[in-house]
Amino acid sequence: MITLQDIRKVYRNGPLEVEALASVNLTIERGEFVAIMGSSGSGKSTLMNIIGCLDVPTSGKYVLDGEEVHALDEVRLSSVRNRKIGFVFQSFNLLGRQTVLHNVELPMMYGGLNRIKRTQRALELLEKVGLGGRVKHKPTELSGGQRQRVAIARALTMDAPILLADEPTGNLDSKSSEEVMELFKNIHQEGTTIILVTHEPDIAAHAERVLWFGDGKLLRETRKGCAAI
């Protein structure tokens, strides 16, 4: 369902050209749990941003559910982000001034759901991530682990088929990390495709498939239960 063909991303900085991604070819099927690993500067985050439609490739073809995403304009891209992709960031990226409930409702506001449905769905999801009692709190009043769970609830609101997580446990202690990974597992079992960027091997160990990146290239990949290819 995600097909990347010859994806390149070049950053221009004056006369300097930096190749963040050099011809990446990749297919991820529906329902996979994929971890992307690599050192910093390996291109793994750039790839993640391109898959998440936050960034556009310099060249190459990106097909998502049969749709040629690389050719879409900003309005269509925002719709793709809204309906198809749920984001979980390392730094949570919640709106600090708004309540937990409002934060979770936000994607549904842009998605055009009515108020009653929105609130109902948001409360349901907050219950699911174990924050049913904190809906009126501001994110600043929550711990890191709780904030990340709010972000996960937000990523699930539109029933997006893909969940992208960029170092989701990078700012969390080990206990919170485990709770978050537990949630991901449950979400995965319900059929959502999960793509997770990390540099921690024990986090990547939760995934069925691990992609190793370096110098903007896909170096190798391993599947659970299989030797490195």
């Binding site: 998440g52 936050l54 309005v75 925002s78 982000r81 309906r83 990226n93 709106l95 842009y110 998605g111």
Partner: peptide
């Protein structure tokens, strides 16, 4: 700017 980034990431159109 960051707030705008967050809103865009979760599906806000340029028009919104």
């Amino acid at each position: 700017t960051r707030e705008i980034g967050i809103r865009k990431a979760i599906g806000a159109t340029p028009g919104a």
